[in-house]
Structure formats: C-alpha cells, structure tokens
Design a protein around this nucleic acid. Structure first.
Length: 595
DNA sequence: TTAGGGTTAG
C-alpha cells in the first residue's frame, strides 16, 4: 500500500484498516537497520554530490542529476548511506511537492525511524517544520502519525508526546493506533497524568478511539486507583458505540482488587456481575485476577470459591492460577496444603515454573521450614533448573531474618560462583540482616561497597536508616538521607520520612519528628498519609500527650483520611469516642456516621 | 494491539 493511495482517496478511515497491519509489522522490523532488500549502492561520491545538492537546495540541478534513477531506489541508498535523516526528509518532501512522487510506505517508515532515533537539540521541532513545508495535509498527517508511532514503539515517550502535541498545533490528524502506542509508552513510564491528557486530546481532536485505546486509558486510571474515572471511560465507550470487552472488565476488576481498603472485593464482584449481565463471559484471566485478589484481601476461602467456580465453568486453570493459590496458602501458613496444591497442579498436567518453586521456597522460609526450603532448592539445582537471583534472595533473606547472616553471605558467594550476579535486592537482604544483628558498622561498610551494577536504591536507604533509628541514632539516618538525596538524586517517599519520624518519636524527640513532617510537606510536597499520622500518634500517646494525639486524630479525619486498624490500636479510647468499632475481621466502621 | 502470578523496606 502506498502513501499515494491515501493521498488520492483522502480517506482517513482507510488508515484505520491499513495502519495496524502494515505498521505493526514494520515497527517490529524497524529495530534492524533496513527492511529493504539490498541493491547495488551508487558510488560514494555520487551520494555525496546528491547530499550537497539537497543541502544547498539546488533542486533544478538535482532534478537533472537524478532524472534516470528510480526514486525509491535512490532514496533507499541515501538512507542506508547514513546521510543526515533531515536531508533525506527534505528530499522526500521535495519529491512529494514538486515531482508528485510518493515513496513507499516502507521507505517512509525507515526515514521516520532514522529521524526518531536521531538525537539532536530540536529534532521534533525541525521535523515538524520540514513536514509542514509540504502543503498536502493528508501526507503530513500520515508522516506525523508514523513519527509518533516510531517514537512510542522505541520507548521514547517524551519525544512521542512532544510529536503528539506538535501534531495538534499543526492540526495534523493522528490515528487511534499511534495514540494507543503513545499511551502504552506513557503508561510503562507511569506517566498517568499524560495518558489522561492524550485521551482528552483525542476526544478534543475527534480521533475516534477503539476498544484497545479505551482499555489502555482504563488501565491507567486503575493503576492509580482512580476507579471512578476508570468507570467514566467505560461509559465513554458506550457513547462512542463501542462495547467494553473482556479485557475492559478484567482491567476494572483488577483495579478494584488492588485498590486496598474495605469492601474492595465486593466492588470487584459487582463488576463481575455487570460483566456477566452484559453477556461478556469471564475468561481464565478474570478468574486469576479474582483468585489473587481474594487471598490478598485475607480471604482464602473466597479464592477457593472462585477456583471451584472456574472448574465448574470448564475454564482450565493454568500455572498463574495455581501459583496464586499456592501463594495464598503459604501466606496463610498452610504450607502443607500448598504442597498438596503443587501435586494437584502436576497431576492436572500443569507444569510448575520458577515462580511456583520460588513461592513454595518462600512459603517454607516464612513458616520456619528452612530444611524443606533448602531441600527444594537443592532438588531444583539437581534437576538442572536455571535459578535466578530471586530464588537466592529469598533464601538469603530467610537466613538473615533468622540471624544467620554468615550463611546468607555464604549463599551469596555460591550464587556468584554459579554466575548469577548479586543485585541490589541481595545486598538489601544482607544489609538488613547486619542491621538486625546490630552490626551497623559492617552494614555501612557493605553499603559503601555498592557501586556499578548494584547501586543502592531507596529500599537500601530505608533499611540502613531503619537500622540507625532502631539504635537511637536517628540523626545519622537523617544525615544519610540528606547525602542520598544530593549524591544519588534519591526521591524520598512517605515511608522514607515515616522512618525518620518514627525514629525521633522513639527517642522521645517529638520536636525532631515535627521537623521531619515539615520537611516532608515542604521539600517533597508529600501530604501526611495514614501511616505518617500513625507514627506521630504513637509518639504522642507514648509520651502521654493525649490531647495532642486527639488533635492530630481530628486533623487526620478532617482531611478525609480513613484511620486503620493500627490507628485504632494506638488511640483506642479516642477512636471509640469518635464512634469507631472494628468488625470480626478487624475492619473499622464508624457507627456514628452513615458512611 | 489492551488484562493476571513470586523476593527485599513498612
């Protein structure tokens, strides 16, 4: 399919059909240097001559020079001779404008791919300027669209977004396919606000979204817990005459499952009902999401109910299903049942994978069954199964948590002998072990050794800070954080400041804790969350300052924060006074308000 | 094309 056919028809509806097939194929090929079969190259000096003519814009000379050459072939040669892609673009536009020649889609894609990969100061600006020189809006739109797609598929989300914005300024119409690719790239980078921006822009620019586009937007809202907005998008779909499909519903159900708070599974279940009412059948993924959601909500019998339901509906469980069930059992301390589930999975013909084994090893470790964990570990090695750092980290952490830090180091050496690189997580486990043993000097020494492939991350800082705090050296922890921010560009989170506040509270230094709060709210513009309030409430109540604690509790409620079980345990009398009561499962309810 | 599972901080 040639660009020319789009140009003559001027029908964008055609793009919708052609782009997905053509471009997705091309974009997978675009990582290799060229998709065009090799043809004899012109002499180097000839390319140089042509390049000079383009650069100096001696178009009439150029016209004479290339009059006997096939334009597609010549263009391919220019592109593969590593000529500046912006010169190639200039030539491309000249062909389109002055000679009415449109090059093949594949060559166009190659050009845009080179442009998208070129790193210079104002590439997108200049590319759009060059594109706009051509007065055919239809061609321009296709070029802009391919550019956005090329950037997005190359994970260059910032450039893709800029190209998307510029396309808007120039009123070039983009396809839903490229917008979806852009939103996926943004989602992968956790740029949720940008996904929303692109979605709103699509509506404004009247780009007809499809079910895939909507699903990406729904996913984006679900990932940040904005469930109301996710549901609004489901409604938008209907307005556009598109019906939510099984992926839309699964995404929404998963969003509720991962939401946290009371009644989330009830809401997930409600979506399931709505899904069935809309005649969309739940599939394997739906059941897997629910099984995982229930046990993470502490409701293993809920998981089993879903499992039975899926068997009744003749949906075959896969390795993910069994892994979730095994995890649920292990986390509830039912390790022998987890082992049975493993056997059941094998007899059902589902092959356990490394996740299954890691889950079981972790289950053994967390339930004081170190021997069983090591037996399974050895049997995996004996069967020639390739282990990863994760398996080793589980065991190293178990050793460190049981005070056997030396054995942890032994295992680290073993993994390195096996050619598996110890990563930050490995070091985090070991540093944590040393801190718990009270060997702060050794912990700091190991921390200082981190460099190159295993740089300390925020977790490493948290562990070491926690170590200092629990020894009454919160000032040292604060200094460490300060250093981390300036040297490593560390981005502290709530937990970071909560560790410091807790440290000061334990030392009885409430003023120090209050200063950390100020720092948190000022420097990072982080608002106090429930965990932060819990830390301060603990500090005040331990000092017997119940009036202050009560004031803090009121402040928290005024902000609309919902106290949790920990809050209840710290300031029970005050909470009861405000009408809070826990139910049998420990969820809090406020009997004095209707909500 | 879009959705689901395991370790480390708390």
């Amino acid at each position: 399919m040639l660009i020319k056919s789009f140009v003559t028809k001027r029908k964008f509806s055609d793009l919708k059909d052609v782009f997905p097939r053509k471009l997705s194929r091309l974009s997978t090929l675009c990582s290799s240097s060229s998709t065009i079969p090799k043809s004899p190259c012109p002499p180097r000096d000839d390319v140089a001559v042509i390049a000079e003519l383009i650069e100096k814009q001696h178009w009439s000379n150029l016209k004479l020079h290339v009059k006997d050459t096939n334009p597609n072939e010549l263009f391919h040669q220019l592109i593969s001779s590593k000529l500046d892609p912006e010169l190639c673009l200039r030539y491309y536009i000249w062909l389109a404008n002055n000679r009415n020649i449109s090059l093949s889609l594949e060559l166009t894609f190659n050009l845009l791919h080179s442009l998208a990969n070129k790193r210079s100061d104002h590439p997108i600006h200049s590319i759009f300027h060059a594109i706009s020189l051509c007065d055919n809006v239809c061609v321009n739109s296709i070029l802009a669209d391919m550019l956005v797609l090329a950037y997005a598929n190359n994970s260059r989300f910032a450039s893709a977004l800029e190209a998307f914005k510029r396309a808007g300024y120039y009123a070039f119409k983009l396809s839903a396919l490229s917008c979806k690719a852009l939103m996926v790239a943004l989602l992968n980078e956790k740029r949720f606000a940008d996904v929303e921006f692109v979605y709103k822009e699509m509506v404004r620019r009247r780009i007809q979204p499809n079910v895939f586009t909507f699903n990406v937007v729904i996913n984006s809202f679900c990932k940040i817990g904005k469930m109301e907005k996710a549901k609004d998008v489901m409604e938008d779909m209907k307005v556009y005459g598109t019906s939510p499909n099984v992926v839309s519903y699964n995404t929404l159900i998963d969003g509720y499952c991962k939401l946290g708070g009371i009644g989330k599974m009830y809401k997930a279940d409600a979506v399931l009902k709505e899904m069935v009412e809309s005649k969309v059948s739940p599939n394997l993924t739906t059941f897997n999401i629910l099984i995982d959601g229930f046990w993470k909500d502490g409701n293993y019998s809920g998981s089993m109910k879903v499992f039975k339901e899926m068997l009744e509906q003749d949906v075959k469980p896969n390795v993910v299903t069994y892994n979730s069930l095994i995890n649920g059992l292990c986390s509830g301390g039912k390790v022998s049942e987890a082992t049975c589930m493993h056997d059941e999975m094998v007899s059902a013909g589902v092959e356990p994978n490394l996740v299954t084994h890691n889950s079981l090893i972790n289950g053994f470790c967390k339930n004081g069954m170190m021997k069983e964990a090591l037996d399974m570990f050895e049997s995996l090695k004996g069967r020639g199964i390739v282990l990863t750092a994760k398996t080793y980290n589980i065991l190293i952490d178990a050793y460190c948590k049981s005070g056997k830090v030396e054995d942890g180091f032994g295992l680290k050496e073993e993994m390195e002998r096996e050619g598996i690189v110890a990563n930050v997580e490995t070091y985090n486990c070991l540093i944590g072990g040393l801190c718990r043993n009270g060997s702060m000097e050794a912990a700091k020494k190991l921390f200082d050794q981190l460099s190159g492939k295993a740089l300390p991350d925020l977790v490493t800082y948290h562990i070491l800070m926690d170590g200092y705090c629990s020894r009454g050296e919160t000032r040292k922890a604060a200094m460490l954080l300060k250093e981390g921010i300036s040297k490593m560009g560390l981005k502290p989170r709530h937990l970071t400041y909560n560790i410091l506040m807790e440290g000061y509270c334990k030392e009885g230094n409430l003023k120090g804790a209050a200063n950390v709060r100020m720092q948190m709210e000022k420097e990072r513009r982080l608002r106090m969350n429930v965990a932060s309030y819990n830390v301060l409430l603990q500090g005040y109540s331990q000092k017997g300052k119940m009036e202050d604690a009560n004031r803090l509790l009121n402040e928290m409620l005024e902000k609309g924060l919902i106290p949790n079980r920990i809050t209840y345990e710290i300031v029970k009398a005050e909470m009861v006074d405000k009408g809070f009561v826990p139910d049998i499962q420990g969820h809090l309810f406020n009997v004095s308000t209707k909500s």
